[in-house]
Design a protein around this nucleic acid. Structure first.
Lengths: 219, 219, 219, 219
DNA sequence: GATGAATGAGCCTTCATTCAT
DNA sequence: GATGAATGAAGGCTCATTCAT
């Protein structure tokens, strides 16, 4: 019992600014979705995990429906700012930028078991909820467009054949498939193995610039 | 009632109507999961879609829990018999068998929007339901083992470098990623485009045997 | 405890035709409104009073909202059929018909403490609920029109002066006021005293045809 | 703070702001009851309408229960002082005093849509709340006793027949019925029409002293 | 005094399950 | 087998009340 990874309740002050409470509750929501599944996620469980009363959830978010939507928005924003930041720290060449994007997709802050489980839950529910659909990962148009432009540069600047759009999609689905794999596999799946698999796919498409270890001649 | 010709009854196996009802309800369950999402799937909706009465669902399946599990088992069995049959019709060489497996994964009977949605729902729920976990797609050990052996043959017989295990995984996650893509994308996603993307990945890993159109020199 | 006028639960069979259950629940609703007030009427209390489970209320009526609306519709229909029937048994002359209408308004089946309390609750709520408003007693247009036509006949055929519309309204508000009085007064208020008050008002307006005891020269 | 001129403070009675706040909240309560109905009246809505914070309501009144009771007391006191004042301005004769009382009952300050709606809500709730019951309009014993004495004077001094008690009640219920009518009717109901209806009733009972326009030979 | 976050009791509603017919 | 009324547990939501600031 005492070894359970429950959040430390005594740390949180009784009153907290609005945004901090919201983030706290969203993190609890992600944790509960991961542990009990989307279908059995209840406000009571979310509140218990956050160490707060259930009434407070409806005070800060207007409804369960809205709490879940805001959780998805939080994840989507987090995902986007993660690869945006990674790109800013990357060199200007297409291989460098592709390398940065792939690494960002498996960054420890983003690619946790809880977050993957929550993403998968939202992917699943999005089929019947248009409002989820446009926020779901694979619909991050900016990411997709960027990835496709980079693949086009790989073709133009480095002589790779084949449709850049299809190559881009092949790499993107590999990333998504790995995410799914990380969740679904019964045996643990370390982040470096996930990244290596993604780089294997990159190396298959761009053999002169990538190896299974990542970007060739990286300094 | 008692005036009905008795012999006519015994000709019809008693178990058939029962199994037909079960399949009917399972198909309705898949449809409801796809349309309303796993979390909002109710027995009432399943019964209505099947055109049956409310109480009958619990008569054929003991509980909702069990209905959903049997639906997953049905999908898993269907998936397995699909690729098994495909394999039987394929030639003996490794490229031919890989080609057959990939095509099987996008067969129109298997790869419908409803089934993809149901699969995704089960992947998502499996995180918190061990009983689902071992039946989920990515855990079809026979499939995975076979695919890995075929990649090992590609390395041994055709001189492809790299870890066969990792190549196999890279191809498998590409397939899963495409499935996810087919569900999640807002724009419709034809089966042939999905297959072409899978073949693009295969061509990247095995360029001398595959093109974006599939197996090279196919006869 | 055993002297409480609780409905006999053992009498009601476990299953009952749809309409009988609905009436049973509507009667329970009227009783609960009268005893606890509209604002504190709960489905649980209604169900307990009917000796049924609370889930059944939402099974037969879709919501509490709808249960209350149907209760009002039931009362309105009951009121209307009461005065309609009274009219059919009355003679053709205007005084006879007015006498019949006034007596109908204080008929023991209609004018019970529970029903008066429920009516008052609906009158009160109708201010903020348009859907109630058009069903409320004072808006029984057929009754009002009829009453006004009868007063017009009293003027035309019997020489009473004054605006028939205003006389009709004066008599109608007297009836409504008596109903309110019957509810509000702390001391019990027998039906015959109520009727005598209504007849006093009728006698004031039509002194040659009515006395405090009712229609003059009644046969 | 401490630099403020102390004498100025003592000039303003400390109790005034408190009482002003109370009246402000009571008026807001009346408005909310009229607009949303008694059953859906919440402290939050009352506070919003008063332009005050949520928690303040419980500071000035101890509870919602008490706020509502004080609202009723406020209405009852207002009603009583209204007719008391009207009586002081009236002549000594019975007809003059009856005329004054009836006019007071439809005075614009008393007889507003909001106040009528609140009164009706309290009448309705009073059935199940003894504490409301004794404060409700029809139970204003002083008013009722006075009215009955005036009707007795009409009989004794002006020769009107019939039971004064019943005549008094007939007039009183007419007033209450008109109030109800003003609330319930879908079409607007001007105050002068209401008063004319009341005077019609008075004229029916006291034809030599009242007409539909009010007291005869009024100077 | 004033504010508004926090709490928790109570209620409506949904829905899986049971069961009489 | 089949039906659908009946049950009751569970959970979302509202809102009166409390309380730290």
């Amino acid at each position: 019992m005492s070894s359970l990874p429950e959040p430390a309740r005594s740390e949180t002050p009784r009153k907290l600014p609005r945004d901090e409470r919201r983030v706290q509750l969203i993190e609890a929501t992600i944790a509960v979705i991961a542990r009990t599944g989307y279908a059995r996620t209840t406000l009571g469980e979310v509140a218990r995990r956050a160490g707060l009363s259930h009434g407070l959830v409806n005070f800060h978010f207007r409804s369960k429906e809205n709490l879940l939507l805001e959780t998805l928005l939080h994840l989507a924003e987090e995902y986007r700012s993660n690869w945006t930041a990674a790109l800013e720290g990357a060199g200007p060449s297409a291989p460098e930028r592709i390398d940065a994007l792939l690494r960002a997709d498996f960054a420890p802050a983003i690619c946790t078991p809880d977050r993957l489980a929550a993403w998968c839950a939202f992917w699943s529910e999005a089929q019947s909820r248009p409002i989820y659909q446009e926020r779901c990962g694979a619909n991050d148009d900016a990411y997709n467009d960027l990835f496709e432009r980079l693949c086009a540069r790989m073709a133009a600047e480095h002589g790779y054949a084949g449709s850049p759009a299809r190559t881009a999609r092949a790499l993107r689905v590999a990333v998504e498939g790995i995410w799914l794999d990380m969740m679904t596999m019964r045996t643990p799946y370390p982040l470096d193995e996930a990244l290596a698999t993604a780089m294997t796919a990159a190396a298959a498409h761009f053999p002169r610039h990538f190896t299974e270890a990542g970007l060739r001649d990286r300094r």
